[in-house]
Nucleic acid binder design. Structure first.
Lengths: 341, 341
DNA sequence: TTGTAAGCGTTATCAA
DNA sequence: TTGATAACGCTTACAA
């Protein structure tokens, strides 16, 4: 190549990497053209591998998930996040490396060095619930840029991006309070995932902000929502003055399902007799009608925010705000309170 | 790294690249362990770019799409393919590089060298309709392993994997013939996409195999199905002895929609009065009921097959059968023929 | 069984 | 404005 154009390899490099940049100043137009022509006629393209070797960064952002990145079941997949991840990565000129099969028994599933593979990229995004803390912290300790998608305050030093469940839950309660509800009950499952805790906090904050009292019965915490949340129980609560219920969103949608079933079984209409709220998005099979009042987790934006943060870390910049706001969804399951019949 | 283990760089390379292979014979178990331990403690991972440059492989398979890889609309996305791609890649120990933003204005959207980025990987999978032929053939000519997902016979030399529409369509016709239908009409759009042509061929093959005659009217080819395929037309055909219709699947589902609309408008029930078949999967909004008799394109398996083929090419092996069988779907829109009322 | 050394195709740093 | 030349981190003969 350099031969055909009659110049040195270095000159070729100069010409070809100057493309786009305005600073073509260092090369004479004639040489430039000669090189460009030769390149075209040879179909020459700089080898990206060599390029990256020499330039020490490879324009690659990793995505590592502790479960299959593309599970067969679209509902429980990371797909929505990836949409945002890809868009933002593309916008910033990064390509994505999907580290496959963490759980699928794939590429490097085996050893504890499975995680080391990610060092191939300039930085890596992590998704999933079950994180191998040690390995992750190791990466961080080595100065490798790491971002976790989902709140991870327990893992000190690990940067993360998460949805602001607190504010979103508070907003839903505020909406109900504004409609006139005075007694609202939260139905949640009995685990202590950050996502659950956050929602409860937001719920209680919202109550307080509206001048309402949480009281002992305001949070219905049940190991098995379907078992505890009976029609009878609902009827009793309503008789006692409760006019609205909110359920937390979980993987399975169990709380929301149980709540709906119990209300229906109690012979109560919604929002005719009671108002319902869902702190999150409905499971796919219940997505149709009626649209639950609640909020949506902006998965696209979360993915994008994660990439932004990661890109910042890679560039050695400061981390930004890790919380992404959720979107309030008016829905059709909440109306003014109605006194019990 | 080599220092910590007290061995030469070459030994490190030997140890690390022998992994998986049974031929660890050339290295003493002790040295091997020492290197492995050192690597683990340092979190060392061979630089893929360097690896590739040094003429080996880097365990990376590329995925390049000519539209955004992750369109917001899941329905029209490559998601189903990616499920298979990821699974198969994981199973074979490959990681995936998503070359982003071909159309999104991303990473390398610009020049004609956008495609050259894929050379970083050991081989690359291409998805999408609008292929830059020249660039692709260039890659192939350079001996870079390339597989296109979807039939691409026009691009000589480019390996591809596609669905076997011919056999699948033939099977649907055979099913109808077995039910007793003697006059079947194919409704197709008026373009010459390979997918359309294949279906028609399968349709005619199926007719012939069942001892039925295609005849001039067996294929209803209309530029605008909605315009041509009127209720009147359907009624006339039925009066003339036609007892079953099959429509091809297209992006928009236009043919199938038009067929359904016309039949309904003609006051005919299905499968009571006429049987219907769909050569493909129904559009999402019509997916519910009734399930159309027809076939499903096994997108998972297509993705997996593409990876298998690509892996074979990367390994310098022979290409395998590029056609993936579709799955017959009994559905609920076909029954025994009924004489016109 | 392990070490030495020659590339691989760029980029970057100096000189010229 | 251009040309040598030294990295870059690895693989792979070939030598020890």
């Amino acid at each position: 190549m350099a031969g055909l154009a009659g110049v040195s390899q270095a000159t070729v490099s100069l010409v070809l990497s100057a493309r786009g940049d305005g600073r073509a100043a260092a090369i004479s137009e004639e040489t430039r053209q000669r090189v460009l022509d030769a390149a075209r006629s040879l179909g020459y393209v700089p080898d990206p591998a060599a390029r990256r070797l020499a330039a020490a960064s490879n324009n690659l952002l990793g995505v590592f998930s502790f479960t299959a990145t593309f599970p067969t079941d679209v509902q429980h997949s990371y797909y929505p996040f990836l949409v945002g991840v890809e868009q933002e990565a593309a916008a910033r000129g990064y390509d994505l490396v999907l580290f496959t099969g963490s759980s699928t028994g794939g590429a490097g599933a085996a050893g504890p060095d499975a995680l080391s593979r990610v060092r191939l990229a300039d930085g890596c995004l992590f998704l999933g619930r079950h994180v191998p803390r040690a390995e992750l912290k190791r990466l961080v300790a080595d100065g490798f840029p790491v971002v976790h998608l989902g709140r991870r305050e327990e893992l000190e030093g690990v940067a993360w991006v998460g949805a602001d469940y607190v504010s979103a839950s508070r907003e839903v309660v505020a909406h109900l309070a504004e409609l006139g509800h005075r007694r609202i009950v939260l139905v949640r499952e009995d685990d202590d995932a950050p996502a659950s805790t956050d929602r409860q906090r937001g719920f209680l904050d919202g109550l307080a902000a509206a001048g309402l009292t949480g009281g002992p019965g305001a949070v219905l915490r049940c190991a098995d929502p379907a078992g505890e949340l009976t029609a009878q129980r609902v009827r009793a609560l309503v008789a006692d003055g409760v006019t609205a219920f909110v359920a937390e969103e979980t993987d399975t949608g169990a709380a929301w399902r149980a709540l709906n079933a119990a209300v229906r079984e109690a012979g109560l209409g919604c929002p005719g007799d009671v108002s319902l709220g869902l702190l999150g998005s409905p499971p796919a099979d219940l997505a149709a009608r009626p649209v639950p009042t609640g909020f949506d987790i902006p998965r696209h934006r979360l993915g994008a925010a994660a990439v932004r943060l990661l890109a910042a870390l890679v560039a050695g910049e400061e981390a930004e705000e890790p919380l992404v706001a959720c979107e309030f969804r008016a829905g059709e399951t909440a109306g003014p309170p109605v006194p019990p019949r």
